[in-house]
Design a protein around this nucleic acid. Structure first.
Length: 356
DNA sequence: AATCCGTGGAA
DNA sequence: TTTCCAAGGAT
């Protein structure tokens, strides 16, 4: 049974105008050259919460280094993290490799083409499943992202909070009826492209819109009031200290972050959250069990995450006692070797200002 | 359902 | 400056 939002809605007219508009106006993007499911998949993972312009150079470089599913499956984890360095949400690329290995072992290297199977892969949620199925395999599956929710909120005058999971599910139900069965790929991409180019969050270009005649929000002049989206709470901040620590050879100490959680498995300079009671030097020795003499503060770096802010004070330091016991997660490296390691953006800033 | 997980650009 | 947010997913 059709969703109530589609009553008295000209489905076929909407489909044809959207698909035609997309075919004539789509941007030339590197992931639109091929329908290779692997290439489509990689692009969709990269594009999660990330702008097209940001993704383009990463995508091109990634495809040069890992041209096939097998190449990615066989790559070393440090290589894939380096390829992702600066993109953020690093679990995306680790999950992608886990998933690709699953495809090699369990699906003979062929990306599965059913929603149930592809959704079972690490990092493939409802959106990515629908995107790959429709774009690479031409299946009439919904692919609901932020663009789609914004566009359909306006076109169908839906005032549900798009921050809620239940609202995404509502749009999925609607889309099973609304998606073009002739060209699901162009339809889904057209919805997103429309959201990116015309039906933008602020100041939508309604006068240029190919589906304006179908738009209930435009009809009522409410396009600027939709979609409804509740605000998320703002970040808490932490005071951090980081140390560019050198030994007698002039090498610098770095360490690998933990297996899970924030910035998992990236490399960083030794750092910790500062407490008021002890000096930064004493706190360092307590955390790392290395005798050091700290020099002056050399810079301050702010690192803004989606839910957290680090205010990092960076110090220079010298090992003063016996060298460190040598833990597997710690490494002394020369400046020349730094480029081999993947660092979070805040630590890239430290490198640029203090080491290069 | 709410929180965690990055980053940079635009308004 | 602050806020929002961009082709979301895992827990």
């Amino acid at each position: 049974m059709e969703q109530k939002q589609l009553r008295n809605f000209n489905i076929t007219g909407f489909q044809h105008q959207l698909v035609s508009w997309f075919q004539e106006n789509q941007r030339e993007l590197p992931w639109r050259i091929s329908k290779d499911p692997y290439r489509v998949w990689v692009s969709e993972i990269m594009l999660q919460q990330t702008r097209v312009e940001t993704v383009i150079p990463y995508y091109n470089a990634f495809m040069r280094e890992f041209p096939t599913l097998e190449a990615l499956a066989e790559a070393e984890e440090d290589r894939i993290l380096k390829a992702w360095e600066g993109l953020g949400y690093y679990s995306r690329v680790r999950n992608l490799q886990t998933a690709v290995r699953e495809v090699v072992e369990r699906y003979e290297g062929e990306v599965p083409n059913t929603r149930e199977e592809i959704s079972s892969l690490k990092g493939v949620g409802p959106y990515t499943a629908g995107a790959v199925l429709s774009i690479a395999y031409g299946k009439p599956e919904p692919a609901v992202d932020g663009n789609v929710m914004r566009v359909l909120s306006r076109v169908l005058l839906v005032d549900e909070d798009i921050a809620k999971a239940s609202t995404r599910k509502l749009f999925e139900k609607i889309l099973y009826d609304l998606v073009s069965k002739e060209d699901p790929s162009s339809f889904n991409q057209g919805l997103m492209e429309l959201g990116a180019l015309i039906c933008t969050p602020t100041s939508p270009g309604c006068l240029l819109c190919p589906v304006r005649e179908h738009c209930r929000a435009y009809d009522q002049g409410k396009q600027e009031e939709l979609p409804i989206k509740s605000k998320k709470k703002k970040q808490t901040s932490k005071q951090m200290a980081a140390v560019v620590l050198r030994n007698e050879r002039g090498e610098v100490m770095i360490e690998k972050r933990p297996e899970t959680g924030l910035l998992a498995r990236l490399w960083q300079f030794p750092n910790f959250e500062v407490a008021d009671q002890l000096s930064v030097e004493e706190q360092f020795m307590k955390v790392y069990d290395i005798q050091v003499e700290l020099g002056e503060q050399i810079q301050k770096v702010e690192h803004v995450f989606s839910h957290l802010i680090w205010n990092i004070t960076v110090y220079e330091g010298q090992v003063s006692g016996q060298p460190d016991g040598g833990q597997a997660t710690r490494r002394w490296i020369s400046i020349k070797e730094i480029e081999k390691y993947a660092f979070p953006v805040s630590h890239q800033k430290i490198i640029q200002k203090s080491l290069l």
